[in-house]
Simulated scan of single mutants.
Amino acid sequence: MTPPSDLPPAKVLIVEDDPMMQLGLEQALAGYPGLTVVGRADDGYIAVEEALRLKPDIIVMDIGLPRLDGIAATQQIKAALPSVRVVMLTSHTTENEVIAALSSGADAYCVKGTSVDRLITAIAAAQEGASYLDPQVARRVMDHLKPSAPTETAMIGQLSQRELEVLKLMVEGQSNPEIAAALYLSPNTVKTHVRGIMNKLAVDDRVQAAVIALRAGIV
Rank of each mutant, 00 (worst) to 15 (best):
L167T: 01
V190F: 03
I77A: 08
G64W: 02
G31N: 13
A138L: 15
L145V: 14
G113N: 04
D107H: 13
D107S: 15
E97F: 13
P147E: 14
L68R: 11
I14L: 15
V211L: 13
L7P: 12
Q76L: 15
A80I: 05
N96A: 15
P19H: 14
L23Q: 11
E165C: 01
D43A: 03
T94L: 09
L119A: 05
T189H: 11
A28R: 06
P33M: 08
P9M: 04
R195W: 04
P9H: 10
T121E: 15
M142G: 04
G70Y: 03
P9S: 08
A79K: 13
K168N: 08
K55W: 02
V166Q: 00
P8S: 06
G64R: 08
G31M: 09
I156F: 05
L35R: 07
K146D: 10
Q158S: 14
A73M: 00
Q76D: 14
E49I: 06
P33E: 12
V203C: 15
V190C: 11
L201W: 07
L185A: 12
K191P: 00
Q27L: 15
T192G: 06
L201N: 01
M155E: 12
R195P: 03
T192I: 07
V207L: 14
Y109V: 01
R162S: 08
A106T: 01
L13C: 14
P150I: 04
D57N: 11
R67D: 14
K200M: 10
K168G: 06
L169H: 09
N96F: 07
A100E: 13
C110I: 13
S175N: 01
P19N: 11
P150N: 08
P147H: 09
P66E: 01
S131A: 12
S160V: 02
V37A: 10
A10E: 05
M198I: 01
R140K: 14
